[in-house]
């Protein structure tokens, strides 16, 4: 039988030292503070950054969906072409054609009432009070007089101030950036034709010039492609309903029984765009 005499204080010391070590290390498991001193002082915020944009062409097929339209929703298909001079600055153009046009429920509602009135009054409709009051504004088929966006071409510059990554479900992460863009836009518009007597409800096409701007997010799927979502504002005046709403009265704020440029109301057109970008060359650079 071995004697334990004299060993107990040593073991006690050993246990205390071990416990102290454990406690000391558990205390150090706290959140980190950003140290502005030491080797990181003055260092760039990001090292070994994958430069997804720098010196690369970007070709992005896209679909744009107009938002908050009173009368007609438009889906435009097109592309965005960019050349990124640096990782944070690029020049390029956006172009899209309005291929799908869907009337809103408001158009259906107005036309339903309009058709019912005309059916009830028959040939005498133009002489009824409603017929006379709506003579300039409401044709036999309301859908045929509403304003449309046909196409958009917009040379633009792109700034990419924010670059980072996103983790999804704490299991995968992808590089991402936030970009802002802006420039002039040339917009093909179809809307009610100007008229003085206004016995017809025909439409005419014109080109409007407007500012365009917005912001977007890119999610880099691999070295040569990314998925993107962007919002675009496109404010300009147009006659969305084909109505006579202005041109008369003291401040031209009342109808004048004519369709003129004054009837074009300022509209903050908005679009949501989804795109898939391809980058050339297919290999990106990496920062220091």
């Amino acid at each position: 039988m071995n004697s334990t005499k004299g060993k107990t204080p040593k073991r006690l010391l050993a246990a205390l030292a071990t416990s102290a070590a454990l406690l000391a290390f558990s205390e150090s498991a706290q959140a980190q503070e950003i140290l502005l001193t030491g080797p990181l002082a003055g260092a760039p915020a990001v090292r070994k950054l994958r430069l997804h944009r720098q010196s690369r062409f970007e070709i992005a097929p896209l679909a744009s969906f107009t938002l908050l339209d009173p009368y007609e929703r438009t889906i435009l298909f097109g592309a965005r072409l960019n050349y990124n001079l640096t990782d944070w600055f690029g020049i390029g153009a956006y172009g899209a054609y309005g291929a799908v046009k869907i009337p809103t429920a408001l158009v259906d509602h107005i036309q339903e009432v309009n058709a019912q009135r005309r059916a009830d009054a028959g040939d005498t409709y133009p002489t009824t009070p409603t017929g006379r009051l709506t003579k300039v504004n409401l044709g036999p088929n309301f859908e045929d007089q509403i304003g449309q966006i046909d196409w958009i071409v917009a040379p633009q510059i792109t700034l990419v101030p924010f670059r980072g990554k996103i983790a999804l479900f704490q299991s995968i992460y992808i590089d991402t950036d936030v970009y802002f863009f802006g420039g002039p836009a040339f917009v093909g518009v179809t809307e009610r034709e100007n008229c003085d007597e206004c016995n017809s409800f025909t439409r005419a096409s014109r080109m409007a010039i407007a500012p365009t701007f917005g912001l977007g997010l890119s999610f880099y799927v691999n070295k040569w492609s990314s998925f993107g979502v962007e919002w675009r504002g496109l404010p300009f005046s147009r006659n969305t309903g084909g109505f006579d709403t202005a041109g008369g009265g003291k401040d031209d704020d009342f109808p004048d029984n004519k369709i003129t440029d004054a009837d074009r109301q300022f509209t903050f057109n908005q679009m949501l765009t989804v795109s898939y970008s391809f980058y050339l060359p297919t290999q990106h650079k990496i920062s220091e």
Binding site: F25, S28, I34, G38, L40, A43, A45, R47
Partner: peptide
């Protein structure tokens, strides 16, 4: 217990830990 560093951590080792963790913001997107 060494996943995170103490507030008082100084010097090269502390800095290296921060850089690797991303919390030190040395490499958020690399």
């Amino acid at each position: 217990t060494s996943w995170a560093q103490g507030k008082g951590a100084k010097g090269p080792a502390a800095a290296a830990g921060e850089a690797a963790s991303g919390e030190g913001e040395a490499a958020p997107a690399e």
